[in-house]
């Protein structure tokens, strides 16, 4: 049985239409009109134990709504969901002991108090035995390097420091499933890298299932092994990262280091993207030209010292997918 099972899940919100101008406002006050917003339209997927899945899509695609439904915050309009064998909105309390959540835009830490106090409070809320709690906190404090931060009021922490504390708070009760909603939003490069590594390592070591939403493709590349892309409440792609790469990589970056100062290449599907003395980079459209042909062509023209062939960054792949599926990112 899957850890997360989602079948034909739909969610419709009712929004009040606001009238234009003063007369519209008065009319709306006495006779409000409502419109339906279909945030999710019958999505289905399964996630197995220990899988790390990225849930991505443009703003308003339905990512956060899905996480809220799976964690039990919202009730669906239709469909079935099972998380760790529980129906989230009906068995919230039982489920809460088994899931951890991080909402990048929200804090679960008490703002004016040191993070240590929140951890103590959560340990009581989750009824963690004191010796288990002490050992787990010690391990998490060492792993997330938050020892010096424990006694500082949360309001004095930087965003990166706070996010590390948020994740520790989510890991305290050793959840088997993690829902991370934009966990690296607003963080600097090193803080992002640290959080990605920690989530990945924790999942690998403990078999934690991770469902992550993010606009940062780095989160997807470093943490996840599967991607679900959603747009306008519908799933448009559900593939492993490897399949996504093989299916959507139409370009590669080839860099030559040459004895000659420069090389000239004019082949169909090949575009020069960087030119320095003794070093040139080309973008090659693999549907029009093979990498071998490009290398052969370069070897015919110059003495090569080094060759590098790279995939384009994940961001480019996602852009391609959005373009193919006419997603307005």
């Amino acid at each position: 049985m899957s850890t997360i099972h989602v079948e034909n899940l739909s969610k419709t919100f009712k929004l009040k239409k606001s009238g234009k101008g003063l007369s519209g406002a008065i009319k709306s006050f006495f006779s409000p009109e409502w419109k339906d917003v279909h945030a999710l339209q019958g999505i289905s997927f399964d996630i197995e134990k220990g899988e790390r899945v990225a849930f991505i899509g443009p703003n308003g695609a339905g990512k956060s709504t899905t996480i809220k439904l799976l964690s039990g915050i919202l009730n669906p309009s239709a469909g079935q969901v099972s998380v760790n064998g529980y129906v989230p909105w009906q068995e919230r309390e039982k489920l809460s002991y088994e899931i951890g959540t991080v909402f990048g835009q929200r804090s679960q830490l008490w703002y004016h108090l040191p993070a240590q106090d929140t951890f103590d409070l959560l340990a009581c809320a989750y009824e963690i035995k004191p010796d288990v709690y002490r050992a787990r906190l010690k391990h998490l404090v060492e792993t997330f390097e938050i020892g010096p931060l424990l006694e500082k009021p949360v309001r004095q922490l930087s965003l990166g420091q706070r996010m590390r504390c948020e994740i520790v708070a989510s890991f305290l009760h050793a959840p088997s499933t993690l829902f991370l909603d934009e966990p690296t939003v607003g963080l600097d490069v090193s803080a992002k890298a640290m959080i990605r590594d920690l989530v990945y390592d924790s999942s690998k070591q403990n078999g934690t299932t991770v469902l992550l939403t993010s606009h940062d493709t780095g989160d997807i590349e470093k943490v996840c092994d599967r991607v679900i892309i959603i747009d306008e409440g519908q799933i448009i792609i559900d593939h492993s990262i490897d399949k996504l790469r093989s299916d959507y990589i139409r370009q590669k970056i080839v860099t030559f280091q040459t004895k000659e100062e420069e090389i000239q290449i004019s082949l169909k599907g090949v575009t020069e993207i960087e030119k320095k003395p003794h070093k040139s980079s080309f973008s090659i459209d693999v549907s029009k030209q093979s990498v071998e042909a490009l290398i052969q062509h370069a070897m015919d023209q110059s003495s090569l010292r080094d060759i590098t062939v790279e995939d384009p960054p994940m961001e480019e792949i996602i852009k391609t997918i959005y373009k193919d599926h006419k997603v307005s990112a």
Partner: peptide, 8 residues
């Protein structure tokens, strides 16, 4: 809403 998913 976020307090609903705590065991309290």
């Amino acid at each position: 809403a976020y307090f609903l998913i705590r065991p309290i």
